[in-house]
Design a binder for these strands. Structure first.
Length: 286
DNA sequence: ACCACTACCTGCATGC
DNA sequence: TGCATGCAGGTAGTGG
């Protein structure tokens, strides 16, 4: 379940192992993995040949490899189970290998996109004047971006007629937050996931953002969260933050603050984990 | 215009 | 043992 910290770990790996290499060949083993590339798999591979990779960038859960000497990028989204791996040529193909990219140098490694559930994918796009792939122009800056507009985020919360967890997962309001870090930040801020955003005060918004940034930075420091081993860095290694989770996946276990058993509630075809004592449900709307 | 819900996909755990 | 069901969940598109 790659969210911002996990994607950033991958971005850093690509910066170290893939940046400034030139592509000799790309191979699409499953067309669904490039479905966002509307011109099709053949166009994707043809246009990648001979191109030079720049410094990888990221916004929220999206990352992209700029192609030097042009205004295009290879956009990547890991979906729920996507992996970008730097592997030796001789490593056997992974069961769910979807795309392979080979390079011109003698380093002996290739870039592989592996994705069990194929919710993620790669695609090639023109950049906006800001250097962002055009198809993700609607994605908001993320809370670790120095240019994240905290005031605009607060005003958006006040304007919306929705609840806080929905808002946190709305990538056009704030990006990079998924189900795990939403539950973790709400637990830290002692806010129930169904609290309406319209009543948020400026201090409450600021406090929640501080907790979001804290939990993400702590996860980043230990290589991200690997809840079910599907998430790995470019070298195939798992992170350790799952050991530090306070709410997510802890149904029935004591809240680390007050000892009350953590509850799980079905929510939007997934789950919300929360402490029923620390995170009081809002009064039902009349 | 805004908000909420669902399809998409596969592997694993669980229940009968 | 084998089959069915539920669950994991980010995003874009649809329906209200």
């Amino acid at each position: 379940m790659p969210e911002l910290p996990e994607v950033e770990v991958v971005r850093r790996g690509l910066e170290r192992w893939v940046a400034h290499r030139s592509v000799t060949d790309a191979e699409v083993l499953h067309p669904r993995a490039v479905r966002r590339h509307l011109a099709g798999p053949d166009d994707f591979t043809q246009r990648l040949k001979g191109r030079h990779i720049g410094t990888p960038s990221r916004r929220g859960k999206y990352l992209w490899l700029p192609l030097e000497e042009s205004n295009e990028s290879v956009l990547a989204h890991l979906g729920m189970s996507g992996q970008l791996l730097v592997q030796p040529h001789e490593a056997p193909d992974e069961k769910h290998l979807r795309v392979r990219i080979r390079f011109a140098d003698a380093l002996g490694t290739e870039l592989r996109f592996v994705d069990q559930r194929t919710f993620g994918g790669l695609s090639l796009h023109d950049n906006t004047p800001e250097g962002l792939p055009d198809v993700i122009a609607h994605i908001s800056r993320d809370p670790l971006d120095p240019l994240f507009d905290e005031d605009a985020f607060h005003r958006a919360l006040r304007r919306k007629r929705t609840t806080i967890k929905r808002a946190l997962l709305d990538q056009s309001l704030i990006s990079g937050v998924g189900n795990i870090y939403a539950d973790e930040a709400l637990w830290r801020a002692r806010i129930h996931y169904e609290r309406p955003t319209a009543g948020f005060t400026r201090p409450r918004t600021a406090d929640l953002l501080t907790h979001i940034r804290d939990v993400m930075n702590e996860a980043l420091a230990v290589g991200g969260t690997s809840f079910d081993s599907l998430y790995v860095n470019v070298n195939g290694e798992s992170g350790y933050f799952d050991r530090s989770l306070d709410a997510y996946g802890r149904e029935g276990l004591p809240c680390r603050r007050c000892g009350t058993p953590i509850r799980r509630r079905p929510w939007m075809n997934r789950s919300s984990y929360f402490c029923p004592k620390c995170q009081r449900a809002p009064r039902a709307a009349s």
